[in-house]
Design a protein around this nucleic acid. Sequence first.
DNA 1: TGACATACTTAGAAGTTCCATGTATATTAT
DNA 2: ATAATATACATGGAACTTCTAAGTATGTCA
Lengths: 111, 111
Amino acid sequence: MKINKELVGASTALLILGVIAKSPSYGYQIVKRINTEAQDLFEWQEGTVYPVLHKLEKDGLIRSQWQTADTGRRRKYYYITSRGQEALADYSVQWTEFNNLVVRITEVQYA
Amino acid sequence: MKINKELVGASTALLILGVIAKSPSYGYQIVKRINTEAQDLFEWQEGTVYPVLHKLEKDGLIRSQWQTADTGRRRKYYYITSRGQEALADYSVQWTEFNNLVVRITEVQYA
DNA sequence: TGACATACTTAGAAGTTCCATGTATATTAT
DNA sequence: ATAATATACATGGAACTTCTAAGTATGTCA
């Protein structure tokens, strides 16, 4: 299995897929959700996320649908596709293996 | 703690620092070492690693020294600096936290 | 009505990594 | 002997991502 070349950079995509897989969401919500979970670890900007959403949609891993909230505000909801679910499962495995490698290489050796 | 903006992209640096921290190495050796450990997960190209080594040295996280092997071949050995050790410890923590986030977000929910 | 939060979008800059290629030398195979 | 391969370092330019910044629009609340 040759890992996806962009795997690591694709952690953004991985997180987005993870969020949408649990529940369809729209961009702004995803940004808030991840930033809350990330605490002080990092902070996504909207300008980072929207292009990734567009790319994921172009690649057929998610699809979108405009909806109007009760408030009257328009939101573009994203849904994961079956290809997206496959990709998510795939990326998760790759991520885990990659993490194992990082841990193995960087961990301190104890006699 | 604001995570290093390049953390994820910095996984390359993290792995390199991890290798050198255990034992001073030269570029070609690092590439072979990581590629062996990475199995089929990915494969670093030399052209990917040398620029990172140069950047790490410029940032003072590693230092280099030319040595001539018994074979007569010249190698540029890299040593981790104290600042490099601090960075390695720091990045490791950040990586762990980041991984925890990824796992939390992407893991399947069981009732 | 003014300030703020919500919500999406894109342009341009900056930064990384990849691919390809180049140079040089030692080792191994023919 | 010499050809092929492995070792070893290096860099230019392409390709790709992400970031910053800005823009547009609308709903909510003081």
